[in-house]
């Protein structure tokens, strides 16, 4: 039994890296068990939702082998949320590729991370953050007593931090941008991959919505911030090129 103050974990999940930092004073075994439950949940969700896995429910739905209404509860839940978001964003967010195939990837990562976060709370952990590819759910504070401070990566240089945000207790942050994977966000209204912004971050109480709003807000461009701030307690940080 080893009691420690800081526990850090990394694993491959959902095509990216999942990182967990726990700042609670707790037994290393407790922290490790919590981490294993998080990874198991993320991997399970990946098996259901990945478009890269032939046997995933999403792939089967896309091939016409499975009707959406016969899918599992989680898949229906995600598509229910995606449908609501398509309406709320006036089409800027879409869970379909331009060719019509289903791809809720823009929603699943934040949703999955938030679900995994619940496991940490259930296991009695109070001060931690879970990041899946830069979509971060926090709880409590750092061991120093400060709020979790998150650097927003400079979209023109991914080795630099452009600004620092202190995340209110229990809040989440997600960022959409052009940097790492190229222009992977398309505008559902015009079927084009464009945005005048370089990156768009949303801070708010739930990661699933922060992530989804970041995706939609990035596509909306200049109107994105105003749209996001119409949702209670959600806040946008837009980074654009300076002319």
């Amino acid at each position: 039994m080893t009691i420690a103050l800081n526990h850090k974990f990394v694993a491959k999940a959902m095509g990216t890296a999942a990182s967990l930092h726990i700042d609670d004073v707790c037994d290393a075994e407790v922290a490790e068990q919590a981490w294993r439950s998080v990874v198991d949940l993320l991997w399970g969700i990946e098996q259901k939702f990945s478009t890269f896995i032939e046997t995933s429910e999403i792939s089967r739905i896309s091939r016409g082998e499975l009707h959406l209404l016969d899918a599992s509860r989680e898949v229906i839940e995600v598509f229910d949320a995606c449908t609501w978001l398509e309406h709320a964003s006036n089409g800027a967010f879409r869970a379909r590729r331009p060719d019509g195939t289903l791809d809720p990837a823009g929603f699943v990562k934040g949703w999955a991370t938030q679900r995994a976060s619940r496991l940490l709370t259930e296991q009695g952990l109070n001060n931690w953050y879970l990041s899946v590819g830069g979509d971060i759910q926090t709880a409590g504070r750092q061991s120093s007593g400060e709020l979790w401070s998150v650097g927003i990566v400079d979209p023109t240089d991914d080795q630099q931090v452009r600004c620092i945000v202190e995340i209110p207790e229990g809040f989440a942050i997600a960022t959409s941008g052009v940097a790492a994977r190229g222009r992977h966000i398309w505008d559902g209204r015009t079927d084009q991959f464009v945005s005048p912004l370089l990156s768009f971050s949303v801070v708010g109480p739930d990661l699933m919505w922060a992530d989804a709003f970041a995706t939609a807000g990035f596509v909306m461009g200049a109107q994105g911030s105003i749209w996001v701030e119409g949702f209670d307690r959600y806040q946008a940080i837009a980074i654009s090129a300076q002319g």
Partner: peptide, 14 residues
């Protein structure tokens, strides 16, 4: 900068 504990940006691949 010692302040930062996490970073958020466009998703990186594994």
């Amino acid at each position: 900068s010692a302040k930062i504990r996490a970073v958020s940006g466009a998703t990186y691949s594994w």
